[in-house]
């Protein structure tokens, strides 16, 4: 690990001031991703500004019924919050599906959103990677691509976003609040993460020095009937091959009054399945409709050599999730 200076920020304003104009400085919160990257030699900040005691670690009610989650709230505490469990169960379940108990006690809400891909080539500094070293090439394109993207990739990068939490937050239209040198701004979570295009080194639309301070969950009745399903190589403690966050609201005639769907494991960002949602609204909650919705979203998939299975896996995961959510309560 390269030597670095360390400062502890007393508040978010001080943290932002400490990073302003210092390209080589980075924020440290839970450290579960950044410290690992520093050990691997794929991140070497010259200054760490520790925000773990500066970030808000509370979850507060918003006027109108939503929740404001401080960026310093640990993943374990967010999953344990009874309001989250009751009103946004897909979010609690997504958090619980991620990492391990020890890591969830360290990892923060802000850090979870900003964690970087687990593409093995990105994590291996001996191989070319456009995300780690722009212009060096993508090793995955001629390598093992089982875990990689089938939607929205580019010739420069086929990595996937690893967060489970962000997938559920995307389905619920969360708003990310950010503090920068120029003040505060709010970003719809759909606009936070980006596709790789020809700038794969940028995971998000944040500028250097911007600090996530909170995430707002809007008041959303449909979210109370939601869940998160994760498919992976091990039963626990593994990243998703495919995951689905979904919420449903059925009308009295068992047609979809509303539906929210987001996928993980398929793209460089959490993937909101608007085509599948449009396919379902107003349709009866039947197996055929679920399949049609999956097809609508996945028709554009462009699998790589090793990951064509993800199309069927994502389709089946969506169908199973919708079946679970639309089954009459007694039959569940």
């Amino acid at each position: 690990m390269k030597p670095f200076e360390y400062e502890r920020a007393a508040d978010t304003g001080g943290a932002v001031a400490a990073l302003a104009g210092r390209r080589g400085a980075a924020y440290l919160a839970g450290g579960t991703n950044l410290v690992d990257h520093m050990k691997l030699g794929i991140a070497s900040p010259e200054l760490l500004v520790d925000v773990s005691r500066a970030l808000d670690a509370r979850i507060e009610e918003l006027p109108g019924g939503g929740l404001r989650i401080g960026a310093g709230v640990r993943n374990a505490d967010l999953a344990a919050d009874m309001r989250v469990r009751k009103r946004y169960p897909a979010l609690a379940r997504a958090l619980l599906s991620g990492a391990s108990g020890q890591l969830r006690n360290l990892a923060t809400t802000g850090g979870n959103l900003l964690q970087r891909t687990r593409c093995p080539y990105f994590q291996d500094p001996t191989t070319p990677c456009n995300k780690r070293e722009p212009g060096s090439g993508c090793s995955a394109l001629d390598g093992h691509t089982r875990q990689h993207a089938i939607l929205g990739a580019s010739q420069h990068c086929v990595a996937t976003h690893p967060s489970d939490m962000a997938v559920a937050m995307l389905a619920f239209d969360a708003v990310v609040r950010v503090r920068g040198a120029g003040g505060l701004r709010e970003i719809a979570i759909a606009d936070l993460h980006r596709l790789p295009g020809d700038v794969p080194q940028r995971d998000t639309t944040l500028e250097h020095g911007e600090l996530i301070t909170d995430v707002d969950l809007p008041s959303l009745e449909i979210a109370a009937r939601s869940t998160y399903r994760k498919v992976r190589d091990r039963a626990s403690y593994a990243f998703a091959l495919v995951s689905v966050a979904a919420a449903v609201e059925l009308a009295s005639d068992d047609t979809f009054a509303d539906v929210r769907i987001a996928f993980g494991g398929l793209a460089h960002k959490p993937w909101r399945a608007t085509l599948a949602e449009d396919e379902l609204r107003g349709r009866p909650a039947t197996e055929a409709a679920f399949r049609a919705a999956a097809h609508a979203e996945l028709a554009a998939a462009q699998p790589l050599r090793d990951n064509a299975f993800k199309i069927a896996m994502a389709s089946n995961a969506l169908v199973a999730t919708l079946r679970e959510l639309t089954m009459p309560r007694a039959a569940r």
Binding site: Y6, T32, V35, D36, L48, S100, Q102
Partner: peptide, 27 residues
């Protein structure tokens, strides 16, 4: 493993179990 993947470094820090290999001492 020294990368937060195996759990053999687990201690209770301020009462909660964490992987101490990914926790910087200064923090």
């Amino acid at each position: 493993c020294d990368h937060g993947q195996c759990g053999s470094c687990t201690c209770l820090v301020d009462g909660r179990r964490v992987t101490t290999c990914l926790s910087l001492a200064v923090a």
